[in-house]
Amino acid sequence: MILGKVTGVVVATIKHPFYVGRRMLMVDRLDEGGNETGAYLVAAAAVDAGVGQTVLVVDEGNSARQVVGDSSAPLRSLIVGVVDDVAID
């Protein structure tokens, strides 16, 4: 899983049926220090996360499909948690 920060919302009316009714959020990748890496992705949201929040993103299709319980979902990046704290020794 990767750490990211929600930085925007992407709206698309014409899209694959799986994504109908699902929020799609722009997530900037963060490194272990919480710094932006410059990379980003657009993820579907399994949990409700708002702009500015740090989130946990599953970035692999099989896991994401298991979370949503749909074995044919064309889904790879999925927000599965809102992070409260990161502590690294």
């Binding site: 698309a12 899209k15 694959h16 044919s72 064309p74």
Partner: peptide, 27 residues
């Protein structure tokens, strides 16, 4: 996931368009 968007899905595709974006609301 690119192939899984298509019908039939078992096709040799490694990039697919999933949707047409109306708006990106990011500062």
């Amino acid at each position: 996931e690119a192939a899984m968007m298509l019908e039939p899905w078992f096709v040799p595709v490694d990039h697919s368009i999933m949707g047409i974006v109306d708006e990106v609301s990011r500062d």
